[in-house]
Write a protein that binds this DNA or RNA. Structure first.
Lengths: 210, 210
DNA sequence: TGAGCAATGTGAAAAAAATAACAGTTGTTT
DNA sequence: AAACAACTGTTATTTTTTTCACATTGCTCA
């Protein structure tokens, strides 16, 4: 309906920005105008208009030379590009403060990334629901991940068990990991790993403002 | 002692990696060998040896052509490069699940980024200590931030108040922000802002593994 | 209707970052 | 002590990402 899925490779930075365009515009949807200019969108996200136009060009979205880009079409095509049709299943591994916080975030956001299982070792959490997500014993991970067709894990376990947990996850078929532990995970190149390294980020900020 | 502070501009990616080298090597310190090869260090962090050598070159560290890089010297020079002598003061703003988790992380890590104050609106938290960090009413932010010479804030407040809180922080003299809210913050270019956008990261992972 | 303006779309240039290539060093071995 | 091996230091090349520049388009309004 909104143009075809582009299976040409997109630059990682573009994918990142596309996700942001959509989240921003989800709020605009319905309200206000039906269209938005590249410079408006750029301004809202501290980008340049050229960057925005190029990103949209790459996913085959064409705007109106006078009115800008149709917001619904934009949201639609971004969805066709970066989502799987049926959404993707995500597991949360480690239900501590951080895990709960992440759950809260994602529940509020409009996204097709569905957290469908959480894992922990705490008997008090296992077999309960947290924020509507069923909690399992990490022992059952392999089975649950297979059954629910989960490919992505958010890793919020204590650092001591980060490596062993990762090994288990990879054996269970996980293909992408969002790593909140400060532990470096050594994974093969076909696994998509994204590190959220708080200390490093802080030190980076520290360096650049001094 | 370990070579001079280089005040030439370093690429952001280099600064990021330097922080990681140090964290990794802090664990090696004392143990094992006194030296490490670029290819060993690269292997441990999934980088290329060339990248490592270039980074170290940029901070003026020179290795031994046969033995590699002296680990203590490496840690020392990275410190001289990216730390302030006296460390830097950081505030945690918003003491929810996420805030507490972040506190836990940083307390465990060896870093000169010191969290010296936390802010919230919850009467039950104000004037207590959490993980040895004193908690203040956000109303007092301006005063406390000035007094304690805080320049960096970790923003873990609910999205509804993200923008207003940021305004307050910037008025109080904060120069760098690590933003955990999914809200886009529009700050002037002289403020160093780093976004931890969980949804975007997840969608990016989703795209690249499909 | 047609001139003007304010967008878009995109090739080309520039900047930033990563990778390759290799000469130069240093310890080791015979 | 000469040949070797395995590193480092750095220049050159390639790749990736951003920015520039400008022709083209589509609405508006005189």
């Amino acid at each position: 309906m909104f143009g075809q899925i582009m299976n040409t490779k997109l630059p990682p930075r573009t994918v990142e920005r596309l996700s942001k365009y959509r989240r921003l515009l989800d709020k605009y949807k319905g309200l206000d105008e039906a269209h938005i200019y590249s410079h408006k969108l750029a301004g809202l996200l501290n980008l340049t208009p050229e960057q925005v136009r190029r990103d949209l060009m790459l996913i085959g979205l064409t705007g109106n030379h006078r009115k800008g880009y149709n917001i619904k079409a934009l949201i639609g095509i971004i969805g066709n590009t970066i989502d799987r049709q049926e959404g993707q299943q995500v597991a949360l591994v480690g239900i501590g403060n951080l895990g709960k916080a992440v759950l809260g975030f994602i529940r509020k956001a409009e996204t097709r990334m569905n957290i469908v299982a959480a894992f922990d070792i705490d008997r008090n959490k296992i077999n309960t629901h947290i924020a509507h997500v069923p909690c399992f014993d990490i022992q059952e991970a392999k089975q649950v991940i297979r059954e629910k067709n989960i490919r992505i894990a958010i890793l919020t376990v204590p650092p001591e068990v980060a490596v062993s947990t990762t090994t288990l996850l990879l054996q269970s078929g996980i293909r992408g990991i969002l790593n909140f532990t400060s532990v470096h995970l050594d994974v093969s190149p076909d696994i998509y790993l994204k590190d959220y390294d708080i200390i490093t980020s802080l030190e980076e900020i520290g360096f650049f403002i001094k």
